[in-house]
Design a protein around this nucleic acid. Structure first.
Lengths: 345, 345
DNA sequence: TTGTAAGCGTTATCAC
DNA sequence: GTGATAACGCTTACAA
């Protein structure tokens, strides 16, 4: 077997044709499984293909044929985050069936990274994009959309542009979570959310506020904290909140990492069984913790599946008006959220 | 803004040239930032580029220039698995810096899927591959390697072929885990591992066996179970093992999902604080469980980082002999692994 | 500084 | 059935 150059140089159809003693076009026909080639020719070509280790050049093929590239982009916040990873899994499963390839990127909620990633994929002529928007402005995508590139926003609504989108009912879920805590008698409920530049964080805080308002409970702005990026942030913040006079008796955690941070803080202060906790978004071993963590479940897999279904439909020419799916969330009662409020002093 | 056709049709350099009233080559120069174009021409071209929404066509450009495509493949067992996801994150971080794009796929340990995914990426002329091998035979890759395609195996050694590889010390880690349990006085230790067709599962079982042998403990083959794919499998199996006469007093779980299954089974049988448990591979909230779970930690991020470093070095022409990095594992003592054996009856 | 011609690996078109 | 030939969108080589 010949040792390859470091610079990849692969056999071309031309070379296969030469070795097989046939024309270029015949090789093309055999390689593409077109009918109307004699068995003998077919055999000779396949032989040459084997011998030269010929591989079809999808890119060159596409250049001429104008067919789609079969490259789909999936840009999420963080591919190592459970929620994103599950969503991607669903996307990947659907595209694999079509022989498409999925390019992924973590944007870490940096709009600049989003633009760079999109740019890279467009230069590579991806067929479509699934995007978890960073920041609040996706208007730069207008040119691409107008050029016919299907883009589906997932998990968060896009800003300043109309795109197909699949999101969870963040506001409703947060309201449910907060209402649940209110029903246990809590009135001082901390609200810990991510960076408020992120639409979902804002929506979840708004859901919290809505629930309080509906219950006629006055908001203590000291108990509402945004900008929490990591579980360590969340743990530190909650520890601080618990240390002041008249501390919260319950916590609404606006994200899975924040929930974990909250659990750590409650453990450290020995308040796990005293302070109630409801988290938005499931945590892996939520049922195994003590107490088990009550959460608002949002279905990442369904979000991904729906998004990719819409994308593939668009690729197939579906002319429907804009899809804006909003998936319901589900309160999963496990224990931590049912800790009652202490009797009023 | 013109409404795009469903079939994407983007402006070409030719069209830009026509609109700007310059030659194709001048457009090429401006677009590629080559020196030696008058400011006036540059302006006219940039104008036309804007107006037409021109996007560079990386594929066409590559076809002639022969430059690398900037597409890197990362094929893992399951992108929604924590370990894989973290590994991918590291890969992605490194490639992003180079403006490369990462295509991912979950193989689910199905050799057929691996071949299909590799095939798809090769047709798209990816520059290199990071592969978590499925099954035990990667010899089919020989032709690609000979053609100059850099491939780095991660997490598991490739079968029947020499590839750069980055793996964890599975055998050593499993031996450490088992030795740790032996030190607590346990003699009847269950060993629960994944499908034995997976190299890491075999290595971990072998590490378990080695530790028993070194301690002069006879192996009870009834306690050694392979083929566990899900946490439910693991839970069911352990529940069964615990129900027979002379049950195990400790468990070595060969994978993070198996560890979770074991925790569930121990909870259900109320043996969490009676039967010791050491798991291979960290579990997300291991420190928050009761008891906290002792694990053998393997560093997914480092594995990914090293693999991609090797890959990029090869792309840059590094002619070193084969790399075969074996990363050490670390025993993380948390509680579940330190439950002592009951006194002999 | 700018432009022309050829060619990258493939497919489409139309002859033989 | 099989094969020339042009073309896809771009870059290289070379000329003006």
């Amino acid at each position: 077997m010949p040792v390859g150059d470091p610079r990849q140089r692969r056999a071309t159809m031309q070379q296969v044709a030469a070795l097989a003693g046939v024309s270029l076009k015949t090789v093309s026909r055999v390689v593409n499984g077109e009918a109307g080639v004699s068995p003998e020719m077919t055999g000779r070509v396949q032989d040459a293909v084997q011998r030269l280790g010929y591989r079809h050049h999808h890119g060159a093929s596409n250049l001429r044929s104008g067919r789609p590239t079969g490259l789909v982009g999936a840009l999420v916040q963080d591919i190592s985050n459970d929620f994103c990873a599950e969503l991607l899994r669903a996307v990947e499963a659907a595209t694999r069936e079509r022989g498409q390839v999925v390019a992924v990127a973590s944007l870490d909620d940096e709009p600049q990274r989003e633009r760079a990633a999109v740019e890279g994929l467009i230069r590579r002529r991806c067929d479509g994009l699934i995007l978890m928007p960073s920041g609040t402005d996706q208007s730069y995508l207008q040119a691409e959309v107008s050029a016919g590139l299907p883009i589906v926003a997932v998990d968060r609504p896009p800003g300043n542009i109309a795109l197909d989108s699949v999101t969870s009912d963040n506001l409703g879920g947060a309201r449910d979570a907060t209402a649940h805590l209110l029903r246990q008698g809590h009135r001082r409920i901390a609200c810990l959310v991510d960076d408020l530049g992120i639409m979902t964080a804002t929506a979840r805080r708004d859901g919290y506020l809505a629930a309080l308002r509906e219950a006629g409970v006055t908001v203590d702005t000291q108990l509402v904290v945004g900008g929490l990026r990591t579980d360590a942030d969340a743990a530190a913040t909650l520890t601080r909140l618990l240390a002041v006079p008249n501390p919260p008796t319950a916590v609404f955690a606006g994200r899975n990492t924040i929930t974990l941070g909250a659990v750590r803080a409650l453990r450290a202060t020995d308040l796990s069984h005293t302070v109630a906790l409801v988290g938005f978004d499931d945590v892996v071993a939520a049922d195994l913790l003590d107490p088990p963590v009550t959460t608002i479940r949002q279905d990442a897999a369904t979000e991904g599946r729906l998004a990719v279904e819409i994308l593939l439909a668009r690729l197939d020419g579906d002319p429907s008006p804009l899809f804006t799916e909003v998936l319901p969330t589900e309160l999963v009662v496990r224990g931590s959220g049912e800790i009652p409020a202490p009797r009023s002093p």
